[in-house]
Design a protein around this nucleic acid. Structure first.
Length: 706
DNA sequence: ATAGGGTTAG
């Protein structure tokens, strides 16, 4: 315990009364009691200590002081009430309010505002009706309340009813219309208002921009300047944001110059907007320059830079910004974490993502929906959906994105029962599914061959008024039907779609044809694709693979010639895995890796083991017109196998190996890896271009259906 | 100086 009297004396000697009271409030309640005695309970001491406690949201301590005051003024009571309301202690606020012997209009208005802040529209209306004398502020506060709760009609009535309307009242209505998406009403009101100030203009510019009418917003800014209204820093940050959203580089640069001339460039809001503006315009150097010129930089400006780097695919730089800000003592918030985690995700840098996750836990942000959503995407993308599920379960207030993220994650990993279970839960807790939920569920069905479930969901969502049926949904459904061999039904669906099928839909049908060897429909689908997108390499490859699997090498050659003639190149297959932050990339038959010798030796050893347990390579997947023996060799050194071989020789026995591949895993590799996982007694996770495969103990999570 | 109107990152 600190020795009070000593500190006390030194404080008295050294400080002005004000700084003295600021200093002592750092100490405990009992000490404050002492302080008031020592200073003879002067009014000044009570008020300033009280205010300080209110500012720091120490309500009970503030009340302790408040109760020591013999006859608190209306003014002081109002402060106390506002303090309670700000901290959601509405009951305490009301109790104090009704106990007051006299109340003025300001006090009534504060109480109304307090009720609104605590979410009680009814209570605030009750007070509004009860109060003896309403002024323009009372009316505006009440109108704002209704606007916040989306009760526009009531707000409109009050606005018309109020005895006198000043500019602030008009501005409130304009802003409220925008908040409720009523853009036309806001514009009408703005045009009809008798007198406008800079706030009216700024509200309009911001509202129009936020509703996608960026050009109109910028036009209004010009009009504002022409009509002689002087912009404030708020106007500038709004206008620069609009330039960022355009994006309008030229105009933004001009506004930037204006900002510098008028001396607004040290405003944090303006700086954050400028950083985002230059990042959106891909002027990353200028972006850093703006950031670097400023002296007082807050977390928002830092996050704008962090996000800006990410937007420009400079993820390493983004992560550097994140660690720099922590080093300099700027606490990252949800947004900073979201951006940093997105950069980790792009880099597939799970290790660094885990470090950031740990920091998020320290700052109690891992239960925040935005942070958690990013974490789930990261873990899921890097192969660890189970951690994603744990994170999901701990989210305090799950939003629609949280539900969609976990459903899509489970779908990608082939955990379709989980995806459906989450969907059921989501419905039960009353969250309305959207288009993305629907896509996630359908893709889940297609990945695990759930034909009936897929049909039911498709039916259910088709009749859902809130859902816009999109091309994705049809593509998924075609996929579900096609994989299950219902090619005719799939074709019917494509024919009867309300919109024209695009490449994605036809590709779904084509790939189903390849799976079920339907040559006629495959050719038909392929030609539809070539009509829409003559350079779609996926269509050529699928068709060529279909012919190859049937041994129709002439047709394969014909397609090759066609591709060559049109200058279309097949994307080369590559696989990679990340070890100790280093990414190792392999091509098929690649011999460039430093550990190449060991990798091939390991794979040869595995090949022997595979033969021993009776494994026969499936040559349909070799897809090259060569002799059979050679085919086996080519299959054995597909890029994913090289990556797995490298994983096996460089990681601890028994640990999980996670490999990524840019194309779909071939059927032969799939069967081989299933057995390899059993032979080496490890879990092998392969993320291919369409989903995850968890190979363990002789089985794959996809149930050999992908 | 106890009450009402516009702004930044995702």
């Amino acid at each position: 315990m600190v020795a009070f009297p000593a500190i006390f004396r030194s404080l008295i000697r050294s400080s002005s009364p004000k700084s003295f009271f600021l200093a002592i409030t750092k100490f405990s309640n009992s000490f404050l009691g002492l302080a008031s005695i020592y200073t003879k309970s002067s009014f000044f001491s009570f008020t300033s200590v009280l205010c300080h406690h209110l500012k720091n949201q120490n309500l009970d301590e503030a009340r302790f002081i408040f109760d020591k005051i013999p006859l608190p003024s209306v003014h002081l009571c109002t402060k106390m009430i506002a303090g309670y309301a700000e901290n959601c202690r509405l009951d305490d606020a009301l109790k104090l309010f009704y106990k007051m012997p006299v109340r003025d209009t300001v006090c009534w208005n504060s109480m109304i505002k307090g009720c609104l802040g605590c979410g009680s529209l009814n209570m605030s209306r009750k007070l509004f009706d009860e109060m003896p004398e309403r002024n323009v502020v009372s009316w505006t506060t009440m109108i704002n309340g209704y606007l916040q709760f989306g009760r526009i009609e009531v707000a409109e009535c009050l606005f018309l009813e109020m005895p006198m309307r000043d500019i602030a009242a008009w501005n409130s209505m304009i802003y409220g219309y925008f908040c409720n998406g009523r853009v036309d009403d806001a514009m009408k009101l703005f045009e009809g208002m008798p007198c406008r100030n800079v706030i009216s203009w700024t509200s309009m510019i911001s509202g129009l921009d936020q509703h996608g009418k960026t050009n109109e917003a910028l036009f209004l800014f010009q009009q504002m300047v022409v009509s002689g209204v002087e912009p404030t820093s708020t106007t500038f940050s709004t206008v620069i944001t609009a330039c960022a959203n355009g994006p309008h580089l030229q105009l933004g640069v001009q506004v930037h110059a204006l900002v510098v001339m008028l001396g607004y460039s040290f405003d944090a809001f303006v700086t954050a907007s400028l950083v985002t503006f230059y990042a959106n315009c891909k002027q990353i150097d200028e972006c850093y320059k703006v950031f670097n010129e400023k002296l007082h930089i807050n977390v928002v400006v830092w996050t704008a830079l962090l996000t800006g780097y990410g937007l420009n695919h400079k993820h390493e730089d983004a992560l550097k910004v994140f660690s720099d800000m922590i080093k300099l003592g700027i606490l990252p918030n949800q947004s900073s974490f979201t951006s940093a985690l997105n950069s980790c995700c792009e880099l597939e840098a799970l290790d660094r993502g885990k470090e950031i996750h740990a920091t998020a836990i320290k700052l109690c942000l891992e239960t925040d929906a935005f942070v958690a959503n990013s974490l789930i995407v990261l873990y899921s993308k890097c192969g660890n959906i189970k951690t994603g599920v744990v994170i999901f379960k701990n989210i305090c207030e799950k939003n629609i994105v949280s539900w969609n993220t976990i459903i899509v994650g489970c779908a990608q990993h082939g955990y379709s029962m989980w995806a459906l279970a989450f969907f059921t839960q989501m419905i039960r807790v009353g969250v309305d599914p959207d288009e993305i939920t629907f896509t996630g569920l359908l893709s889940s069905c297609s990945r695990s061959g759930m034909l009936q479930k897929g049909r039911c969901l498709f039916e259910y969502f088709s009749q859902c008024k809130a859902i816009d049926m999109k091309l994705e949904h049809y593509a998924c459904m075609v996929d579900i039907l096609g994989r299950s061999g219902k090619l005719e039904e799939a074709e019917e669906l494509v024919k009867n779609m309300p919109m024209k099928a695009n490449t994605m839909v036809w590709l779904a049908l084509l790939s189903a044809c390849r799976m079920h060897f339907d040559f006629a429909l495959a050719e038909k689908s392929a030609y539809c694709i070539f009509d829409l997108e003559p350079h779609c390499s996926a269509a050529y490859v699928l068709l060529s693979n279909l012919y190859a699997a049937a041994g129709r090498w002439n047709d394969v050659a014909r397609i090759r010639v066609k591709m060559k003639g049109r200058g279309i190149k097949k994307q080369p297959g590559q696989s990679w895995l990340t070890l100790k932050g280093q990414r190792h990339v392999f091509l098929s038959g690649d011999r460039s890796h430093p550990s190449c010798e060991k990798i091939y030796k390991k794979l040869e050893w595995l090949g022997e083991k595979l033969k021993e347990i009776g494994y026969v390579p499936d040559q349909r997947f070799a897809l090259h017109d060569v002799e059979d023996e050679q085919k086996d060799v080519m299959l054995s050194y597909h890029s994913e196998r090289l990556a797995i071989g490298f994983g096996l020789i460089s990681t601890v026995e028994g640990s999980t190996i996670t490999v990524m591949k840019n194309l779909r895993i071939c059927g032969d590799c799939h069967s081989a890896i299933t057995l390899m996982a059993k032979i080496v007694g490890r879990e092998i996770i392969v993320r291919d271009s369409s989903r995850f495969h968890h190979f363990r103990n002789g089985f794959c999570s996809c149930g050999d259906y992908w």
